[in-house]
Design a protein around this nucleic acid. Structure first.
Length: 623
DNA sequence: CGGATAACCT
């Protein structure tokens, strides 16, 4: 809590107690006393009027003082003012803002004349705290009651739609908005954008955004967040730039959102650009922005910068601990992640996400005993029920350590329905340990859960190919054709001198293409001398573009590396990002390249970091 | 009575 907010709280409570000294409040046992016997009435002459309570209740509302409010309620209930419109309205307001919705609802139902404000605060209460569908049904009751929703009602009920992803209800409210002229209201607009964002309708959100010409920072941020939450981090970044060009200053929310977009792109120049943008706008010591930056630097490969930022936080909250622990886990630095977890336990209470992070760290480091111990710690000491993500980590951990039967056993006995993540971890473990039977079973489940993901088929196809089961390869190829499954096109990116270059497999479109291929050829010669033998015969190459035999040495990651080598000075670290898993053969090749060229090469593939150095990789050759 | 925000496994 900041110094300012402590001061603020103290002042409010002083005001409240001052007022209560003027108007003593009954203990709750007086509720049952007949009105003539209550000390209040005897001690005041003349009796208090409803007006006396107005400012008292307002103070309760301002400081969310629920219990004093309840006592006042009891008082004027006895005095017969309970359904006085002004007092009842304030009380419902107090109950609604202090998370006492059943009380608010009870009183609300008894008030004969319900004004728009009453409906609004109640709908707001349910929209924010749930049950969300209650907010929507209240909205309909309000229409039946004959009141017209205003620019407060509409954002509140839209918030409920957003929480429920109720797109049908959301669209019909949008129609109401258009018919009744709220189209250009920024509050209604931001709520509509958010509702469409949470329902995955990016185009509809953009349409709302375009309709409003006079935009404020929240409207911009809502649209920036829509892109970020729906897998368009690049759009999110460029919209933020457009916002800045329009002279709109970012808020904390804008920055947190756009920093996370740059984390998703995992491209340091963009991240640094946003970091500077935040700095110039005075957010250099904002902990929430800093936490987003910790995540961004870790995802962009600079875990040391992330750690430095973490150490300089004002206050280390759970989210910040989770971000830095996840950062270490992502880079395979399991021991550091677990050390930090031990430190964390002394300062903050780990939550379920913390355990996802540490279990993932164990899995990366093949720390079987530690992982089991942490799982027990979570369930027994912290009373956290395992979610599907914890099971995924455990299956991944057991599977990586060769305990495939135990992993399968865990899946059969887990308390939640295994999802594609769980079966994906199982399939991957089978691949590492060459268990074709269990892999077939896992793929069967995966086809039920996510039939369009080509990566799953590819893993089993490669396993068949490695064990010479060509009829299995053929069967899968046919299955993919029948289901019309699109192959993913592999792409790698590299940053050189603050510019980003993209490469597809077999790409010859780059202006330096000749030099890139010459460098690859030169390296190949040196690699063969060092003992490299391309692993082409045993791998199934026809499923992904990425893995065609003729292109085995021109995979996108190798092109990016070759380009990096000829475009940077000796010794510079290279950072490559790839949209799919790194292939087996490239993994071997890059180990050689790191040794031959004496470079540190980092490849961030679709789900982890590979740090190549002196001919070795941080992933320990299983991924 | 308002609106937008970060950490999560394959």
């Amino acid at each position: 809590m900041s110094f300012y907010s402590i001061q603020k709280t103290r002042q409010t409570s002083t005001t409240i107690s001052f007022l209560f000294n003027l108007f003593p409040v009954f203990p709750s046992s007086y509720h049952s006393l007949p009105i003539q016997q209550t000390p209040f009435v005897h001690s005041f002459s003349p009796s208090p009027t409803p007006h006396c309570y107005t400012s008292l209740l307002q103070s309760c509302i301002d400081s969310k003082a629920l219990n004093p409010g309840k006592q006042l309620h009891a008082q004027f209930f006895h005095l017969g003012f309970a359904y006085n419109e002004v007092l009842a309205t304030k009380l419902v307001h107090l109950y609604a803002v202090s998370n006492s919705l059943p009380n608010a609802r009870n009183l609300f139902d008894k008030i004969p004349k319900r004004n728009l404000f009453l409906w609004n605060v109640l709908i707001r209460g349910y929209a924010w705290n749930g049950p969300h569908d209650t907010a929507i049904s209240l909205y309909h009751s309000m229409l039946d009651y004959g009141l017209k929703p205003d620019n407060f009602t509409l954002p509140f009920v839209l918030k409920a739609c957003s929480a429920l992803s109720a797109i049908g209800e959301g669209r019909s409210i949008h129609e109401y908005v258009i018919k009744n002229g709220w189209e250009r209201d920024v509050f209604v607009g931001a709520a509509l954008i958010d509702m469409y964002a949470k329902c995955g309708c990016v185009m509809d959100a953009r349409h709302v955004f375009n309709t409003i010409v006079v935009r404020d920072v929240v409207l911009w941020t809502s649209m920036v967040a829509t892109y970020s939450q729906n897998g368009h981090p690049d759009e999110s970044l460029s919209l933020c730039r457009e916002m800045a060009a329009n002279g709109v200053r970012p808020t904390e929310a804008t920055l947190v959102t756009v920093v996370s977009s740059s984390a998703d792109i995992a491209c340091l120049p963009y991240g640094r650009e946003i970091h500077g943008f935040g700095w110039r706008n005075g957010f250099q010591s904002n902990d929430r922005v800093k936490t987003a930056l910790i995540d961004m630097y870790a995802k962009c490969g600079s875990v040391k910068v992330a750690r430095a930022l973490f150490e300089r936080l004002w206050e280390k909250r759970v989210v910040s601990w989770n971000a830095i622990i996840t950062g270490y886990a992502m880079h395979g630095l399991s021991v550091e992640a677990l050390d930090l977890f031990e430190k964390m336990r002394k300062e903050a209470r780990p939550d379920n996400i913390t355990f996802v992070s540490v279990l993932a760290a164990c899995s990366r480091g093949r720390l079987l005993d530690e992982g089991r111990a942490l799982y027990n710690l979570m369930v027994k000491d912290y009373g956290i029920n395992p979610t599907v993500q914890h099971y995924t980590c455990m299956v991944d951990l057991l599977g990586h350590c060769g305990q495939l039967d135990e992993a399968y056993d865990l899946i059969r006995h887990m308390s939640v329905k295994p999802d594609s993540g769980v079966w994906g971890a199982m399939l991957n473990s089978c691949k590492i340990h060459g268990n074709v039977e269990l892999a077939e079973l896992a793929l069967e489940k995966l086809i039920e859960l996510e039939p369009d993901d080509s990566g799953n088929y590819v893993i089993l196809a490669n396993m068949y190919a490695q064990s010479g089961k060509w009829e299995g390869v053929e069967k899968l190829r046919q299955l993919m054709t029948d289901k019309g499954i699109k192959k993913n096109i592999a792409c790698s990116w590299i940053e050189v001198k603050n510019k980003v270059y993209a490469f597809l497999a077999g790409d010859v479109s780059h202006s330096n293409s000749d030099a890139i291929y010459a460098e690859l050829k030169r390296l190949e010669g040196l690699m063969h001398e060092a003992g490299y033998a391309p692993d082409t015969g045993s791998v199934y190459h026809d499923v992904e573009e990425d893995e065609k035999t003729s292109m085995v040495c021109s995979h996108s990651e190798r092109l990016a590396i070759a380009f990096g080598l000829i475009s940077t000075s000796p010794g510079t670290r290279l950072l490559i990002t790839k949209n799919l898993r790194i292939c087996e053969d490239c993994h071997v090749a890059i180990k050689f390249i790191s040794k031959i060229t004496e470079r540190e090469i980092t490849v961030r593939d679709v789900n982890r970091y590979h740090h190549f150095k002196h001919g070795m990789c941080s992933c320990g050759d299983h991924w």
